[in-house]
Amino acid sequence: MQIFVKTATGKTITLEVEPSDTIENVKAKIQDKEGIPPDQQRLAFAGKQLEDGRTLSDYNIQKESTLHLALR
């Protein structure tokens, strides 16, 4: 499925993911596309910060959802 990640600079990244993917996997995909190390990424959805060990389906993130990326 496709999801979107909006960066602090307003850029939107499109990612191909599975509901079973962990947040860690998603951060690795962002690193592949943007070169941002996962340990510098903070992802949020619906106002909640997402934890590495959880999956997209844990957070009820569905196709075409938009996550927000902040850098630490």
Rank of each mutant, 00 (worst) to 15 (best):
M1L: 11
Q2V: 15
Q2K: 12
I3G: 00
I3R: 00
I3N: 00
F4T: 14
F4D: 03
K6G: 05
K6Y: 14
K6M: 15
K6C: 03
A8R: 07
A8M: 07
T9A: 14
T9M: 12
T9K: 06
T9C: 04
T9G: 06
G10L: 12
G10M: 09
G10E: 11
G10H: 14
G10T: 04
K11S: 13
K11Y: 11
K11F: 12
K11P: 12
T12W: 12
T12Q: 06
T12G: 04
I13F: 05
T14H: 15
T14A: 09
L15T: 01
L15R: 00
E16T: 14
E16L: 13
V17C: 03
V17G: 02
V17K: 00
E18N: 12
E18L: 15
E18R: 11
E18M: 05
P19K: 15
P19D: 10
S20G: 08
S20L: 12
S20V: 13
D21F: 13
D21W: 13
D21C: 04
T22I: 15
I23Q: 02
E24Q: 10
E24G: 08
N25W: 08
N25M: 04
V26F: 02
V26G: 00
K27Q: 02
A28Y: 14
A28H: 06
A28N: 13
A28M: 12
K29T: 03
K29A: 10
K29G: 05
I30S: 01
Q31L: 13
Q31H: 11
Q31W: 13
D32M: 09
D32Y: 14
E34I: 09
G35E: 06
G35W: 04
I36Q: 03
I36L: 06
I36T: 15
I36W: 09
P37W: 09
D39S: 13
D39G: 13
D39Q: 08
D39A: 10
Q40V: 15
Q40H: 14
Q40A: 13
Q41N: 03
R42Q: 06
L43E: 00
A44Q: 14
A44F: 07
A44D: 14
A44P: 00
F45P: 00
F45N: 03
F45S: 04
F45E: 02
F45C: 03
A46Q: 14
A46V: 14
A46M: 13
G47F: 07
K48I: 14
K48F: 09
K48M: 12
K48E: 06
K48L: 15
Q49Y: 03
L50P: 01
L50I: 05
E51W: 04
G53Y: 10
G53E: 12
G53P: 15
R54Q: 08
T55Q: 15
T55F: 12
L56P: 01
L56S: 01
S57Q: 11
S57P: 03
D58Y: 13
D58H: 07
Y59A: 04
I61Y: 01
I61T: 02
I61L: 05
I61H: 01
I61Q: 01
Q62H: 06
K63R: 11
E64S: 08
T66V: 13
T66K: 05
L67M: 06
H68F: 14
H68R: 06
H68S: 13
H68V: 08
L69S: 02
L69D: 01
A70K: 08
L71V: 13
L71A: 10
L71C: 04
R72C: 04
R72H: 08
R72I: 13
